[in-house]
Computed example of a mutant assay.
Amino acid sequence: MFSLKQTQAILTALPDPVFILTRSGKYANILGGTDTRYYHNGSALIGRFFSEVLVAEKANWFMQQIALALQSGQMLVVEYQLAGSDVLGLEDGPDEPIWFEGRIQPLAFQIDGEDAVLWVASNITARHQLQQRLLHLSEVDELSHLYNRRKLRSQLDSQFSLFHRHQTPCSLLVFDLDFFKQLNDACGHPTGDCVIEAVGRVCLQTVREEDLAARYGGDEFAVLMPHTNTQQAWSLADRLRRKIQHVLLQMDLPQICTSISGGISEFLPSDEKVETIIQRADRGLYMAKNLGRNRICCEHPD
Rank of each mutant, 00 (worst) to 15 (best):
S138C: 10
A198H: 06
C170V: 15
Y147A: 02
Y80G: 03
V120Y: 00
R127H: 11
L130A: 13
L76Y: 06
K151E: 09
S171I: 07
P94E: 05
F160V: 04
H128N: 13
D157S: 12
P190D: 03
Q131V: 05
V87M: 14
S144G: 06
Q167L: 15
Q110V: 09
A121L: 02
A83Y: 01
E79V: 05
R165M: 15
L90R: 08
L143N: 02
T191G: 01
S72Y: 11
Q105P: 03
Q74W: 09
N184W: 06
L107V: 08
S158Y: 11
S138K: 03
S154H: 12
Q110G: 09
Q105R: 14
Q81Y: 09
K151Q: 12
A186L: 03
Q81D: 12
D112I: 08
S161Y: 12
D178W: 01
H136I: 10
V78Q: 13
H189V: 04
S72P: 02
F109S: 09
A83I: 06
Q155E: 15
F109E: 06
S85Y: 10
L172R: 02
R133F: 09
L173E: 03
E114Q: 15
L162I: 08
V140T: 13
F179A: 04
H189K: 15
G113A: 11
Q167C: 12
R127W: 06
Q132Y: 02
G89S: 05
A83M: 06
R201S: 15
S171H: 03
G84F: 02
G113L: 10
L177Y: 03
R150F: 10
P97W: 01
P94T: 05
G188E: 07
D185S: 09
S72W: 12
R153P: 00
Q110A: 14
Q81K: 15
L134R: 02
V117D: 01
L107P: 03
F175E: 03
K181C: 11
C194K: 15
V120M: 10
V117E: 01
A121P: 00
H128R: 09
R127C: 07
Q129I: 10
N184S: 08
A126G: 07
D193L: 02
H166L: 09
H136Y: 15
L173G: 00
V78I: 14
E139C: 12
